[in-house]
Design a protein around this nucleic acid. Sequence first.
DNA 1: TATGAATGAGGGTTCATTCAT
DNA 2: AATGAATGAACCCTCATTCAT
Lengths: 239, 239, 239, 239
Amino acid sequence: MSRRDAPTADRPSRPAAEPTASGPDAKAPRPVTRGRVEKRQAILDAALVVFAREGYDRAGVDVIAAEAGVAKPTVYNHFGGKETLFREMVLSSAIRSRESSLAAIDALPVAPADLTAELLGLAHRLAVCFRDPRAWVLQRVLVTESAHFPDLLKEVVGDGTSRITEALAGRLALLGAAGRLDMPDPVRAAAHFFALTTGEVLTRSLNGARPTEAAELDAILAAGVDTFLRAFAADRCGG
Amino acid sequence: MSRRDAPTADRPSRPAAEPTASGPDAKAPRPVTRGRVEKRQAILDAALVVFAREGYDRAGVDVIAAEAGVAKPTVYNHFGGKETLFREMVLSSAIRSRESSLAAIDALPVAPADLTAELLGLAHRLAVCFRDPRAWVLQRVLVTESAHFPDLLKEVVGDGTSRITEALAGRLALLGAAGRLDMPDPVRAAAHFFALTTGEVLTRSLNGARPTEAAELDAILAAGVDTFLRAFAADRCGG
Amino acid sequence: MSRRDAPTADRPSRPAAEPTASGPDAKAPRPVTRGRVEKRQAILDAALVVFAREGYDRAGVDVIAAEAGVAKPTVYNHFGGKETLFREMVLSSAIRSRESSLAAIDALPVAPADLTAELLGLAHRLAVCFRDPRAWVLQRVLVTESAHFPDLLKEVVGDGTSRITEALAGRLALLGAAGRLDMPDPVRAAAHFFALTTGEVLTRSLNGARPTEAAELDAILAAGVDTFLRAFAADRCGG
Amino acid sequence: MSRRDAPTADRPSRPAAEPTASGPDAKAPRPVTRGRVEKRQAILDAALVVFAREGYDRAGVDVIAAEAGVAKPTVYNHFGGKETLFREMVLSSAIRSRESSLAAIDALPVAPADLTAELLGLAHRLAVCFRDPRAWVLQRVLVTESAHFPDLLKEVVGDGTSRITEALAGRLALLGAAGRLDMPDPVRAAAHFFALTTGEVLTRSLNGARPTEAAELDAILAAGVDTFLRAFAADRCGG
DNA sequence: TATGAATGAGGGTTCATTCAT
DNA sequence: AATGAATGAACCCTCATTCAT
């Protein structure tokens, strides 16, 4: 008769990794019914995955909803539509990515014993940030859809140098003041550091289209840091 | 100007394959083979414009056909469908772009009087190549659709270093042999030259989403060449 | 790769009802392929039927297309969308209806032998016009959707008295000049004629929701004409 | 009936307390269960407003609930669904409208000093009734949705002549008996009175789509009463 | 060969309705 | 009893693609 005869057990699937002990003696047989507020996050996560995999146009709201384990209108209840969902997903991902990048930069010591090793470590940390699917979508989807969402660019990256570049520039300036680096312009040096390390990684991986192997990643980053130090190390002419 | 520019003179003669350089002399004023083959080229040109502007999914075959001044089924007569049209357009554009980039590299003197000026000139020529809409589509559309046309990447760029990088590496190696540059690895240096110049231009313009002004372009390229020479000039430690 | 699967060779079928004699000796194998231009009229006819039956909102473009024997996008090729289709259908129906009503009025003799009989004949002719489904949609759908298509009213009926009322007023004025009617205001008399005859028919049939039987129709019209003549016949006080 | 199948008998619970006369005594002052019952009335009022403004299909339950200041499920708790809500709203409005019309008719004096003035007064009172939004919805929504709720017509208007017409017919018959009117059939005369007065008002206002100004209203009603008296006044031939 | 007309499939969005609180 | 959140079913519309001319 009606379409809701057995409300239980016919929920489509929801893999729902559920790392908790799902042993037979679970007290509360609570089904997968996760809290209401978590659905919003589930949709955002699913949107990240699907948008990153398919691109904006090819991504179907059906697919996102299915990936999130909700019905399609639920997406429209939480977010207004496909575009708003995309925007909020990008923005939240941007924040996460920026924070992780800033943290990576923050971990750069001001007075390192081995400058090369520390810069290499920074490059690796940043590369991890950039290769995190969560951030990867920024480098991929922003480029992909930037022409159609021009305002997203303004919100995510600043107008000129981004906050991340400025953060690194500050660190590099400290290293310069400490006599370890010799740069005409720390901001420019920071930009070039990114260009030589994470930028090269993205270029070589074709913005994530081709997975980069660990060895290749190491080589790229080592080469980038080496060139950077050839250009800006205070003792680059022997010492 | 709608789609009926030349209503007369469409004779059903020969397919007349390969409109590309049909002889060693590309300057010949085109023996006016007007009628059939030009439609194919018009469609390709329109496809370049529309695909670059809209992206693969958003680009409509109607729009491409209108832009080319032909009817929609004509597109299907010439090319098999949207995907084939996209592929052929990308490939032909890739060839054009590669040729212009190689030409720009070829113009780099082997024994320059002013190395900085010559490298700066190269950077400008390459930037022009990359900012040409014809080539821009490669940097933009390839990234955009690379996940959905993975084979196009293999065909356009090589597996590892591209032919363009190799060409520049050859020139840089000559400059190294001439004692003007000091590089551990010319290929790596070439890649870093691109990263510091055209790569930075693309980054700053957000892959073409934001138009870069001439002054900013100059500054970016000058900074990139400066860093490059700080790293690899043979006389970088004074001399 | 594209949104569609590769078009291999599995075109589904096209059942194509084919009500024509599909015997083996059909001379002209002409399928149902009615001329191109006729599809537009078929869609308009179907729209009239469906809109009249379902109302604007409930009417589905799918249903209209099926009723017309065309595919859904064909409706969108001919007309821009649901609203435009509705507008054009209403307008074309309005013209047809107005013409038939005007013709009915035109057939009213100027110097009738039996005035009562002639007015009754006019009432019947008008009632037929109004009960024609083609015109019925005007009285029904215009009322139904007038709030949402206010401009349609302005286009179909004039601002004040409609052309039809004016036409009847002209005839009544002639009858007044001929000494057969005695009216203070022919326009008002014409409006009241409609109110007493076709208006009553519509009221009693609840705007077409309830089919009126022939006998009831006769009675309504006879009563209306009688009242009209009681009010406006020149010899109403005996003569 | 609605877009969905009619919820015949699988409504899970909702005994539907039958707010209509739930016993032989309808006068019981209802034990003041305040707070609850007022919501029901608020929903009915909101439904009247929204259904009248938007029509059945375009009216959203969300909008009605918002207009009533309740949540959407509350509407479903009180009434079973959209269709039931519509029915109950129409019925309650019909009762109100009928009562007011009957009251207007009741106020018509049996032995008026000035018959014309009294009939004109009646016409104005009825016009006010019909122009009250509360009753207007009957003339508008009933026509609009009559095809889809045929039973509502049967319940609201009788099968043939409505109770209102009968009431007026009774009064007119009294006036006939008093020698003030001369009618072959009082019921028919009553129907024609409505057709010439309120019917004309509705026609000219296009069933409420176009607001009628006071002056125009006066003229319409005066003309209708005049024609009515030309037809049915006992002294219409001078006396 | 080039085209106007037609189509099947699918996308985004809304809505009446129900569940869990 | 009342509500926020969730859902299945359509609906309007678009697009890549193919006939028939």
